[in-house]
Design a binder for these strands. Sequence first.
DNA 1: CGTATATTGTTGCTAGTAGCAAGTAATGTG
DNA 2: CACATTACTTGCTACTAGCAACAATATACG
Lengths: 136, 136
Amino acid sequence: MSRRFFELVLAVRRKCQGNEERIQRELGLSPAEFNALIVLGEGAEITGCQFAERMALSLSRAGRVLGKLVADGYVRARPSDKDRRTTLASLTPKGRRARQRIFEHMEACEARICGGLDAERLAQVRNALELLETAL
Amino acid sequence: MSRRFFELVLAVRRKCQGNEERIQRELGLSPAEFNALIVLGEGAEITGCQFAERMALSLSRAGRVLGKLVADGYVRARPSDKDRRTTLASLTPKGRRARQRIFEHMEACEARICGGLDAERLAQVRNALELLETAL
DNA sequence: CGTATATTGTTGCTAGTAGCAAGTAATGTG
DNA sequence: CACATTACTTGCTACTAGCAACAATATACG
C-alpha cells in the first residue's frame, strides 16, 4: 500500500505542478513558503518548534523559512511573554489572502484529479483519507 | 480533500523520515536517488524522458540523477539501437537489491501508519487508494 | 540560591534539489 | 536537402535541508 501511496504522490505532483508553480510565481513564494502558508493555520499563533514539527523540517531550516515569510510580509512574529526564547508566528492579512489563493489552487487540483470519479467513489476516497488522518 | 491529502503527506513524512534517512545513509543514496530506484521498475528499460516524466522532474535534473546512479553502480545505461539519441536505463543487480531494501522500509512505514486501523478500515483505505490511482 | 541541564532559536557551512537557457546530436518532415 | 523536433547535456542560479556551534532563556535539583 505504501508503494501505492508513493506513486499517488508522484501522480498528484504531475497533475498539479504547473498550477502550483504559477501561483508561487504570482505570489513570489518559494515552494517551502507555499507549504508554510498552509501549515500556518488561519489565525492561531504558533512557535518555531511547532512549525518545524508540522512541516517535518529541522528547526534551523524552519526558522529560515519563517524569517523569509516575515521579511516578505506574509507572517508576523513576536516574542512570547511567557517564554522569551520562543517566537510566536501568525499570518498577516496579506498572508491570509495568499493562503486563500492557495486553497483555491488546491480545489482546482482536486477537480482535475477527481474528475474521473463518480460521486460514490469520491465519497469512498474522502472517507478513506479521513480514516488515514485519524490513524496518524 | 486535497488539503487533507496535503496534511497526510506531511504526516507520513513525519512518521517515516527517520527510517528513510537511515536507509539512504546505509545505501549511500540521496533522497532523489532513493525515489529514483522506486520509479525505475524491476527489470524493464526506461528512457530518460520517461524517467523524468515519472519522477515529475525536468529532463536536465532527471539526467543528473540517473548519471549519479550509474556512477554509483545502481543503474546501467546504454544507448538505444533504434534511436541513438535516447539512453535506456535499467537497474543493476546492486540496484535491485537496494530497491528491495527500500520496499522493506516502506512496509515498515505502512505498519507504523496503519497500526491503528482495524482490518475493515484498512481494506477501505486500500480500496480508496486504488480508486485514486485509476482516476489519475 | 546557584549550578547543571534542557529547550528554543540563530548562524555558518556544506551537500543536495531543481528549473532555465543554450548547446549538441540524432531523428522526422516537407 | 533544409527545417523542425526530440532527447539529451552542460553551465548557471536559486532554493532546500541537515549539522554543528553558539546564545539566551527556562527548568530541575542539590
